[in-house]
């Protein structure tokens, strides 16, 4: 299936047109978008992905919040299934309920309809099989790097010597050997995020759940860290679910990408990424990569536009919090 799109588990995509000739950049973009436009629009908004036998199954989740403006459905009938060893990315515009879904799967949020199961066991609260990596900087500033990574082992009651030895292996895995006794304040943002990943991996979760872990990093660091995550995922055969709004990040890393709609968050489409593995950030220069990015953007653009218009509308109709220059009498 290499070189072809498989956007849904159920729908086979026709092959894309032949690689584009190396003409002008604008012309190349136009032709690329035209090629995407020729794809049949199946898996439309609200379509459900069947929850086949996966290690992690999200089944028909609905989450509603009560807001001052009335009830808000953040996540609406979302289902997905992650196979063992698979890297699944969930992508959507801001406000589509990605983080809500992350918190539900991680067991940090309750009061929803539907079910989340891990290996057939229903998730009620944080589950030991799910390790979470958060978007915000989450290392403990009062602990050294090695103490941070050894934290879950300490909680599990492992002896100091054993846990530090084990932590060293995960530190090496994320490429931070030699920094064991540094404090987070002495590390860069990218290094701190690697510490957080190593700390989660040290708990040996069956599923690694990451919520935009590279969101606060610059593009170059993001690509390089993506390489590191890919390498770890391939070395450990780690089942991974990545929540992101970054299209290139999702295509670079994932086996499948679930595209969500803007509010309420529904499954819009599942795109199978048929790029060769092992992958690295070099893949971003490939033509197939560009086509995947263009295709997902064509799905997302409509949703992102809707999100932006909604945001503008709410800002316009919200009561002003600051006095205008005219009312200040200036």
């Amino acid at each position: 299936m290499r070189g072809r799109f498989r956007e849904s588990e159920l729908v086979e995509r026709p092959p894309l047109p032949d690689p584009l000739p190396a003409s002008g950049e604008r012309e190349q973009k136009e032709r690329l978008m035209a090629s995407v436009a020729t794809l049949p629009k199946s898996g439309a908004a609200g379509a459900q992905v069947p929850a086949d036998a996966g290690i992690l199954v999200v089944d028909d989740i609905v989450k509603q919040f009560d807001t001052p403006e009335g009830p808000l459905i953040a996540v609406d009938r979302v289902s997905l299934s992650v196979r063992p060893g698979e890297f699944l990315a969930v992508i959507g515009p801001s406000g589509c309920g990605k983080s809500t879904l992350f918190n539900i799967i991680g067991g940090l949020l309750d009061g929803y309809q539907g079910a989340v199961t891990v290996g057939g066991e229903t998730v009620r609260g944080p589950h030991p099989a799910i390790g979470m990596v958060f978007q915000e900087e989450s290392t403990f500033p009062w602990r050294t790097l090695i103490e941070n990574v050894a934290f879950p082992l300490e909680i599990a009651g492992m002896g100091r010597k054993d846990r530090l030895n084990k932590a060293k292996k995960f530190i090496a895995l994320v490429g931070l050997s030699g920094f064991e006794n540094r404090y987070p304040a002495e590390l860069s943002g990218g290094m701190r995020q690697r510490v957080a990943i190593a700390r989660t991996l040290a708990s040996e979760p069956k599923i690694l759940l990451m919520d935009e872990p590279f969101a606060s990093l610059d593009e170059q660091t993001r690509l390089l860290l993506g390489d590191k995550v890919l390498q770890i995922q391939q070395d450990l055969k780690q089942t991974t679910l990545l929540i992101t709004h970054n299209i290139t990040e999702a295509v670079q890393l994932a086996d499948r990408i679930l595209v969500m709609t803007y509010r309420p968050g529904r499954v819009k489409r599942m795109v199978e990424i048929d790029l060769p593995r092992p992958r690295s950030s070099d893949v971003v220069s490939s033509e197939a990569f560009g086509r995947y990015v263009a295709q997902i953007w064509s799905d997302l653009r409509e949703e992102a536009t809707r999100g932006m218009q909604d945001e503008e509308s709410r800002t316009l109709h919200a009561a002003p919090t600051l006095p205008s220059p005219a009312s200040r009498g200036g």
Partner: peptide, 14 residues
């Protein structure tokens, strides 16, 4: 205390 640190603790079932 930053919410994310508490969530890290909860994710490790403290």
């Amino acid at each position: 205390t930053r919410r994310v640190l508490i969530n890290v603790g909860k994710s490790f079932k403290l």
